[in-house]
Design a protein around this nucleic acid. Sequence first.
DNA 1: CCCTAAAAAGACTTTATATATCTTTTTAGG
DNA 2: CCTAAAAAGATATATAAAGTCTTTTTAGGG
Lengths: 135, 135
Amino acid sequence: MMELTRKGEYAIRGIVYLAGKPMDKVYLLSDIAAAVDVPPTFLAKIFQQFSKMGLVKSFRGTGGGFMLGRAPENITLLEVVEAVEGPIVPNRCVVNPSECNRSGYCNVHPVWAQVQGKVRGVLEGVTLKELAAGA
Amino acid sequence: MMELTRKGEYAIRGIVYLAGKPMDKVYLLSDIAAAVDVPPTFLAKIFQQFSKMGLVKSFRGTGGGFMLGRAPENITLLEVVEAVEGPIVPNRCVVNPSECNRSGYCNVHPVWAQVQGKVRGVLEGVTLKELAAGA
DNA sequence: CCCTAAAAAGACTTTATATATCTTTTTAGG
DNA sequence: CCTAAAAAGATATATAAAGTCTTTTTAGGG
């Protein structure tokens, strides 16, 4: 339960790889994919999402590729995970309390809210810089 | 991400319902299912799993049904969730570190371990008695 | 201007998992 | 031995994850 998908796993690998490289250079998607052992077409989709959120910058055409959008110490693991997996929601009732119960309220609700808070807290406390260190 | 499945949701509803009832009586699966608005055949599967883990006791034949296996203050939400969803594992590498990386170790690993610990901690701190209170 | 390299976008396929349902079997009471 | 109920197993359907393919856009270099 609560398992990260491949997509999330790949996303982390890919961006952590970038975070461990000099920031002002551009890297080919195909090279990143090979380095972190992820299907290139799949990683392409992931990096497109990153690009939309500003986590990476993309450059098209000859000499193109990707670079980190911000300094690695300013990107948290939470952002990376939520960029590709969507928000962390242990139960849909956390988003939409009407899903909670026919009766409108249930005692489990606050538990899920607490779970959500803890998980987000942990992931928010980790930066790409830390993750890339010594890699 | 990290979303409880329907199965988990139904499981909680079903067993919390039982927890809110006098403990020494037997309840028909069909009645429980109707009360908590869950497909009866599906709830049957869930309660079979509960039964194997001792969370509920089952009685077959005429006059049969289900009752809580232990006092509700001695059953945690963690047990309920893990009974039907399996262990809480934010990333498979937490279970099997060889999945972690080609290189054997990665910096993300301890983060997932921490997430796992926090989530389990929250769920372990909640009992069925609390969840059933005032329901 | 054209050719080539690269990412973006979208459609599509395949596989796995979640969500059920149905049928048959076992168990127990009356 | 008849009926009520859960157990077990097989099967069906739907949704989402995982991955691929094709076409389009963008940019640089001759």
